[in-house]
């Protein structure tokens, strides 16, 4: 009696199997339809994205790019102790200034206290975490007091920002001081 019922009713199984096949096929086509074309080309990701990533615009160029036009600064900057300092960190990104070889905008000019602020990003003595030996450190009011200049003076009044020791050395040469800074 038990075995009879088993053989009699199997249509539910057939229905289930048909439903699974239909769903599987539909799923397969849906996947084809909704996945991007290059999905899985190199792995489980959109292969075409590599090309997209390569085409992200470059906004920062090198100092050499700036020097292609800014020749007078090139001579000073490349000879001085600031030769490793990037133009674009202080002045702004190349892409905001030049596009396809044409000037498209002016970069903001830094003045007064802004310049002092930029200098102190690297040269502030009170920030102790800096390696002591790598660059020259100055404590801000003390340096001005020591050099006997006004306390409200900004760095660029004594130091040529592109080569900070240029004027200092020239002045020393003029008045014949030989000692090191």
């Amino acid at each position: 009696m038990h075995s009879e019922s088993k053989t009699k009713y199997y249509s539910h199984l057939v229905k289930l199997i048909i439903a699974m096949i239909v769903l599987g096929v539909a799923g397969f086509f849906a996947r084809q339809l909704f996945s991007p074309e290059s999905m899985g080309e190199y792995g489980h990701y959109r292969g075409a994205d590599i090309e997209d990533q390569k085409n992200v615009p470059v906004r920062l160029q090198t100092n050499e790019s700036c020097f292609q036009c800014h020749k007078p600064v090139r001579r000073i900057h490349k000879k001085g102790v600031h030769k490793s300092v990037s133009c674009e960190v202080c002045h702004g990104p190349y892409a905001d200034h030049v596009k396809d070889g044409k000037k498209i905008g002016m970069l903001p000019v830094k003045k007064g206290k802004e310049i002092t602020h930029l200098c102190l990003r690297c040269h502030n003595k009170v920030i102790q975490a800096r390696p002591r030996t790598s660059i020259k450190m100055v404590g801000m009011p003390e340096h001005l007091q020591e050099k006997k200049v006004r306390i409200e003076n900004t760095c660029d009044q004594c130091h040529m920002v592109h080569d900070p020791l240029l004027w200092i050395n020239q002045a020393k040469e003029m008045i014949g001081i030989k000692e090191e800074m």
């Binding site: 990533q53 390569k54 085409n55 992200v56 615009p57 470059v58 906004r59 920062l60 160029q61 090198t62 600031h82 490793s84 300092v85 990037s86 674009e88 960190v89 690297c122 790598s134 660059i135």
Partner: peptide, 23 residues
């Protein structure tokens, strides 16, 4: 951060590397 993939593929160093004043 992508280590500036787009710059590297064009033969440029990542932006942060190229501006670091103390290397």
């Amino acid at each position: 951060c992508t280590w500036c993939y787009h710059r590297v593929r064009k033969g440029l160093l990542p932006a942060c590397v190229s501006v670091c004043p103390v290397h």
